[in-house]
Design a protein around this nucleic acid. Structure first.
Lengths: 101, 101
DNA sequence: CCTCTATTTCGTAATTTAGCGAAATAACGA
DNA sequence: TCGTTATTTCGCTAAATTACGAAATAGAGG
């Protein structure tokens, strides 16, 4: 989870995610829509991959990025772990096996 | 929204939020549960306040911090704007008047 | 094999963030 | 007023992040 929050902290990365929400794109496609150097974007892709927020498909020399829906779902449930409704007793247990904070 | 993501990117701040989820606390209470200098925590409180994630109540010399539930709800809906289910046509419009990315 | 295209890696510089301790501020109670 | 407690502000340093352009890698096609 920690990697996910870190990944979301950059406006450029959030913009990448918003673009990918619409449709899968190559690195080049995204570079056309965001005004930073391709080498810089490449670094952002690495952060998003490390956080498992995107997945890649390599076809020849082109790499297509897509949102990793399941991790987005994990993000949501992680947020509910922090912010969600209180439970009655004994505090909410972390049954996920993941480090939440 | 941007401030919120930025605020959530620090593990220390997420821990503060998780503590406040359980119950409202003073700065000193929180300092007992987190191993960083009080001056450092004070800086984190400022970030959380700037993101409007917490609110404060001053009583004498003690300041009590609480989660700002409404902004937490905004966070959730902002995440749905980025990650939520696709809509059919014409892209999801940002009707909130807030800058999402 | 050569070259074009797509993407990443590298080296470096600028900016931001996180941390500390010491000093300052502010309110309380004796 | 004086001391005590709670918290913040102020320098300061160290580390992380973001950015760039140039060079490297890798696949496609002639």
């Amino acid at each position: 989870m920690a990697d996910v929050f870190q990944a979301l902290s950059s406006p450029v990365r959030r913009k990448i995610l918003a673009i990918l929400k619409e449709k899968d794109c190559s690195a080049g496609d995204i570079a056309e829509q965001i005004d930073v150097a391709k080498s810089t974007l490449s670094g952002h892709f690495n952060v998003l991959k490390a956080a498992d927020l995107v997945v890649t498909l390599k076809k020849g020399t082109t790499i297509t990025y897509s949102l990793n829906i399941s991790v987005v779902e994990n993000l949501m449930s992680g947020l509910f772990d922090i912010f969600g409704k209180q439970q009655d007793v004994e505090d909410k247990k972390n049954t996920s096996g993941k480090e939440l904070i």
